[in-house]
Computed example of a mutant assay.
Amino acid sequence: MNRQNPFLSAWWRDLDDHEARFDMPSVYQADLLKRAGEILADGIVDELEHFSMCELVRAATSHAIEEKASDYVQPNGQYQLLDGNGQIAGRMDGYGIYLGDGVGIYNRAIARRGADRFRVIGFGLGTTIGCICGQNFNQIGLPPLRLHLVAYRVNGELIPA
């Protein structure tokens, strides 16, 4: 496969576009499959190479969809943070993460979306202390805490999970 061709180089570059793959997986897949067909029709690749390109697109899209499902955290959910023994180590709601008793500036963190596709957690001025990966809050240098959904808000009303 000659990756020096500008159309093929652009296709490989777009295959590695993680933001497009995670934000719009169906559009990402449809676009790359269509372009792979055009690259085949133009004779840039043979049928076997085209088949491999299509398989790569489908695998990357499936991976993105699976990752998004496991990374899902209810935005209106209220969670308990449980340690390895099942003991409550803190809580998380739509406003932040509260470790320990949740009192004091250093016990409250805010969540934001990071480029690495995980939810990055930071204190005040953005010091990174961990990330949400799937249903775990992974603290830097500490054991992970499991997220346990206990309630969520619907129209301002708290509904037990």
Rank of each mutant, 00 (worst) to 15 (best):
M1E: 10
Q4K: 14
S9M: 13
A10K: 04
W12L: 07
R13P: 01
D14I: 04
L15E: 00
H18P: 00
D23P: 00
P25A: 07
V27C: 06
Y28E: 02
Q29V: 02
D31A: 12
K34P: 01
K34Y: 08
R35L: 00
A36Q: 01
E38Q: 10
E38L: 12
I39G: 02
D42I: 07
I44S: 04
D46P: 05
D46Q: 11
L48V: 15
L48S: 14
E49S: 14
H50R: 07
F51V: 08
F51P: 00
S52P: 08
M53L: 11
M53I: 07
V57T: 05
V57H: 03
A59H: 10
A59G: 08
A60R: 06
S62T: 09
A64Y: 09
I65A: 11
I65H: 09
E66F: 13
S70D: 12
Q74W: 13
P75K: 03
P75A: 05
N76G: 14
Q78I: 13
Y79R: 03
Y79E: 04
Q80A: 09
L82E: 07
D83R: 01
D83Q: 02
N85G: 11
Q87E: 12
A89G: 01
A89H: 00
G90L: 03
R91D: 12
D93K: 00
G96C: 01
G100T: 03
G100R: 03
G102A: 05
I105W: 14
Y106S: 10
Y106N: 08
R108D: 02
A109C: 07
A111Q: 12
R112E: 08
R112D: 13
R113Q: 11
R113H: 15
G114M: 06
A115W: 10
F118E: 09
V120A: 15
I121P: 00
G122D: 02
F123V: 05
F123S: 05
F123P: 00
F123N: 09
L125A: 15
G126V: 13
I129A: 01
G130E: 03
C131M: 13
C133W: 05
C133F: 11
G134F: 09
Q135K: 14
N138P: 03
Q139S: 05
G141R: 05
L142G: 08
P143K: 15
P143S: 14
L145K: 00
H148K: 09
L149E: 09
A151S: 07
V154A: 14
E157R: 11
L158E: 08
I159Y: 12
